[in-house]
Structures are given as C-alpha cells and as structure tokens.
Amino acid sequence: MLSAAAALGAVPAQGAPGADTRAEVDRLYAEAEKATQAFDKADERAGRLRREVRDAQDHIARQQQRVNDLREQLGSVAGAQYRSGGIDPTVALLFAADPDDYLDKASTLDRIGTRQARRLAELQSALRDLAQERAEAAGKLAELEKSRQAVAAHKRTVERKLARARRLINALPAADRAAYTRASRDSRADLPGPRGVPAPDGRAAAALAAARSALGRPYVWGANGPSGFDCSGLMQWAYAHAGVHLPRTSQEQRFAGRQVPLSQARPGDLVVYRSDASHVAMYAGNGQVIHAPYPGAPVRYDPVGMMPVSSITRP
C-alpha cells in the first residue's frame, strides 16, 4: 500500500489542507492491510481444515463400511456354526452314521472357529480405528469453527477501517479530495514500465510477466486473482504462473526464499515493507515495483522506496 504522504510527493504534510485527514487515512489503510494479511492467513487455514475434514469424513465412511462388512461376515460364520455345530460333539458322534463323515465335519468346524476369531480381531481393530478417526475429525471440526470465527473477526476489522477511511476521504474539501485521488489512486503515469532489465532466471521472468499482465486490475482485499488481488495475493498468483507455490501472506512470503540486500534486488524479487511485513511488492527493475496498493488503486508500478523496505526475498 502506498502511503498518502509518499503518494502526494512534494506536497508538504505539515500545514497542508487536509494533512491530518490524509495521515489518518494512511494509518487506517496500513491497519486494514495488516488485518487483511491476518484474514488471508485465517482463511487459508480454514480452507486447509475444510479439506482435511472432508478427507477424514470420506475415510470414516469407508472405515464404517469395513466394520459393517466384518459384522456381516461374523454373522454368517456364526449362523453356519450354529447350524452345523450346535450339537455337543460327543453326542453328535453317538448319532453319526459314519464316524469318518463326522470327523470331516468336526475339522470344518475347527476351521470356521479360527476364521471367526480372526474376523472378530479385525472387527475390534476396525472399531478402535473408527473411534480414533471420529475423535480426530471432531477436533478438526472444532479447529475449523475457530478459524471461521477468526476469519469473520478479521473481515469485520478490515471493513470497519476501510469504511472509516472512505468517510474521511469523502469529508475532504472537493479540491483536496480531487488532489488525493489524482496523487494516490490513479495509475502512476509518471512511472513508465521498466524496459531492458532481465530477470535472473526463467521462474522470475515468468512471475514478472504474470504480474505485468495484472497491471490495472483492482485491489480486492482477501483476493488472489485473477480478476482482483490484495498485495500478497498478487505475488502468490504471479509466482504460481512460474510453477512456484508461495505462502499466502506477506509475513510468510518474506521467508519464502533467500534474502538479499536492496542493492542486489533483481526483477522478480519480493520487496517486503514495514517492520511488520504487512505489504509486499515485486521488484520490476529500474527502481520500480509492481504491486496491488490498496482499495481504489489498481495494480501498478511505484517507486521501490515508496515506504520503508524491511527485506528483499528471492524465491
């Protein structure tokens, strides 16, 4: 997110009409972006938990079917055993017309008993596994509910701060509001796209090409493309086009590669801003970055020094 002070360039912050309002809008946008990153992280966790719960439920259904099958097999064996061996063996021998036939039947009953015992052991094991999986699934469902609540809380925070910023901007005198809009919300026509600056490798080149293709698309908080982006969503989307999976948040993206000094930045590097790493952009060469600034400002080029740089990461 480009700060209002940086966006307004040479306009002095002190004494300028609406300066306090612009500073407050700056602060609200920064806090909203920090909350957006928290929203992204919670939303990503909720999505992962939803997949894990769905997989667990599918596995439980298969395990339940196995338990049902084992119970049916045990029932069939028990029925056969009752029909064939319900008479005491010594009494059956007295009434047997053919002792050899009796011995064959007795041998069969022994085998049925062994198989039944094995099926019973399998059933007991399956029931234990099923109970454990159900307990784990219940735990994941509880975690999922907490993540959903966190997502909702962060969403409310972002919306509240953005609404406050919009009210402040709308309350500016018409001339100040127009100046603010021109300086901080229009595409930076004074910054032509970098030319002739090579990326260090094919992956960085592919990611940079994807980021450039997103120029002009709107900032949408919590979005990672393709029609809109927040700052870290744009980086994740761009690098996905290079076959590289980046974490969802700017705080995590800061550690998604090798860190280099700003003086060694190359096109495709991630430029992370502020001490809390709440904003991220992509270095495009010639002292410029591509980024999704904040609501109302499209994906665009801006100077790499638009706000304090905390680190440079080469994925």
Rank of each mutant, 00 (worst) to 15 (best):
Ser3Asn: 12
Ala6Phe: 12
Ala6Pro: 00
Leu8Val: 09
Gly9Lys: 05
Gly18Asn: 11
Asp20Ile: 02
Ala30Thr: 09
Glu33Gln: 11
Gln37Glu: 15
Ala42Ser: 11
Arg45Ile: 11
Gln57Tyr: 03
Val67Ile: 05
Glu72Val: 09
Leu74Val: 11
Leu74Glu: 12
Gly75Phe: 10
Ala78Val: 04
Gln81Trp: 07
Asp88Pro: 07
Pro89Asp: 01
Val91Asn: 02
Ala92Tyr: 05
Asp98Lys: 05
Tyr102Pro: 05
Leu103Trp: 15
Thr108Leu: 15
Ile112Cys: 00
Ile112Pro: 00
Gly113Arg: 13
Thr114Trp: 11
Ala117Pro: 08
Arg119Gly: 09
Ala121Asp: 10
Gln124Trp: 06
Leu127Tyr: 04
Ala131Cys: 03
Gln132Asp: 11
Glu133Arg: 11
Arg134His: 08
Ala137Gln: 14
Ala138Glu: 13
Glu143His: 11
Gln149Glu: 12
Ala150Ser: 08
Ile169Thr: 12
Ile169Lys: 13
Ile169Phe: 08
Asn170Ile: 00
Asn170His: 10
Ala171Ile: 02
Ala174Trp: 06
Asp176Val: 05
Ser187Val: 14
Gly193Tyr: 06
Gly196Arg: 11
Pro200Met: 10
Gly202Lys: 10
Arg203Glu: 14
Ala206Tyr: 09
Ala207Leu: 04
Ser213Lys: 04
Ser213His: 04
Ser232Thr: 05
Tyr239Cys: 06
Val244Ala: 05
Arg248Ile: 09
Glu252Ala: 15
Arg254His: 13
Arg258Asn: 10
Gln259Pro: 01
Gln259Ala: 07
Pro261His: 06
Ala265Leu: 03
Ala265Gln: 06
Gly268Met: 05
Val271Thr: 07
Val272Pro: 04
Met282Glu: 09
Ala284Cys: 03
Gln288Pro: 06
Gln288Trp: 09
Ala292His: 05
Tyr294Cys: 11
Val299Arg: 02
Val304Tyr: 02
Pro315Ile: 06
